[in-house]
Design a protein around this nucleic acid. Structure first.
Lengths: 221, 221
DNA sequence: TTTTTTGCAAAGAATTTGCAGCGCG
DNA sequence: CGCGCTGCAAATTCTTTGCAAAAAA
């Protein structure tokens, strides 16, 4: 292995930083960390090395849910849990031998060489956060007309509020781009806010691609 | 559900074609099939509808290994096996209750809401293919000097052969682009062939970014 | 009519590649 | 001092989006 794999400074750093990360970083996240120590490193190098190192068996590439690949310094077999809310990924020790009993008839003729188990749920941190929010909701329960901050928050996200406020100021229906111009949000982030707001009944679309605040929307502000 | 989801022709076709597919097609594969029946449909529509339908619970979006998302007409809980060789994906029935026994101490405080099990291995078709190749190799075993076709094949991929043949014809070292011009291959496909050929000792690089066939390379042809 | 959907083209995110020079072994 | 490695920019791949026109209800 050493015959063909040179230990360059960047490669060393990648291994080291991956070792320091106790979550399972994406290539990008790792890049951001490494850049602090070696500002001239390029993202391509990080990608290339993660690929090479995982092929060499020195690190592990995780095949888990989500858009981005993640990497793990632990090579030995273990599985993962991930939080559907914050996308955090943790290791889980779990005896796979129980799975080995997959019957012949069920294997569809496959020569099975292994399996991956991926649990999902809500991590302790998110649970705590949710409970707190739930408690707040109960304390000052209302139907959307009250003005308590805790209540508002549960009805409108910060972005939704921003969009809604722009619409409230406008006399007639605004297009996506008008809203974008008046907020700190990217145009692309606006349309999903509008969709959410529509579902809540806080905005309508009187004309194609134009949006207006409703009475309920004004009340919610 | 019907209140907000209109059944358009394209939506109907997507559902129908997904139902006919017994593998788990990617958005793109499905698009190719549907295009035959409705040539003017756009890929964006397919993506949009797969997303919408899976959110509505009418189909299932699979979160499995691989770059592209795949979709499944079966909604009820089941897991998958996939072939590491040809990337085919099959359904597998498998009693997850065995997993439920994940101990409290192991769940790291997560509120686990489910899990995904993904077996991997080699599918029957690929097994058969491999066995056949293995048998051929045994029959006419050699060390790379023989001229039997079956033997050559195992030493050189078609692409590698193509690249090597170009180098054999050239008198002096060729650059990546020279090779590309002389073959049916894209430039981007050439460099990995060269890397593979270098590893086998069939080409050398006398000058930076220039390549030449070696004696061994000529012998292998 | 009125609202949702489509097609198109263009943007976007994540990842990969070609290339020329750099530097490890 | 040769070959693998790097940084950079540009390309690729898969997916999403904005918008105006078209289709459902």
């Amino acid at each position: 292995m050493k015959d063909i794999l040179r230990m360059t400074h960047q490669r060393e750093l990648i291994l080291e930083e991956l070792g320091n990360c106790h979550n399972h970083p994406t290539a990008d996240a790792l890049y951001e960390r490494i850049k602090k120590k070696l500002p001239r490193i390029s993202l391509a190098t990080v990608y290339r090395n993660l690929e090479i190192l995982s092929e060499a068996g020195m690190i592990r590439k995780l095949e888990i849910s989500g858009r981005q690949k993640r990497f793990d310094k632990e090579i030995d077999q273990h599985d993962h849990v991930f939080c559907v809310q914050c996308r955090r990924v943790d290791d889980i020790k779990f005896d796979q031998s129980r799975l080995a009993s997959l019957g012949e008839d069920q294997s569809l003729g496959y020569a099975i060489s292994g399996c991956r188990v991926e649990f999902f749920g809500i991590c302790p941190k998110c649970q705590a956060k949710n409970e707190k929010e739930e408690a707040e909701k109960k304390t000052d329960a209302c139907k959307g007309e009250c003005s308590k901050k805790s209540c508002k928050k549960s009805l409108l996200s910060e972005r939704q509020r921003e969009v809604l406020e722009v619409l409230a100021k406008s006399d007639d229906a605004s297009a996506n781009k008008d809203i974008a111009a008046a907020t700190s949000l990217e145009p692309k982030q606006i349309s999903c806010q509008l969709t959410a707001l529509k579902k809540k009944g806080f905005v309508t679309s009187p004309v194609r691609c134009k949006y207006e605040i409703t009475k309920a929307g004004k009340a919610a502000l």
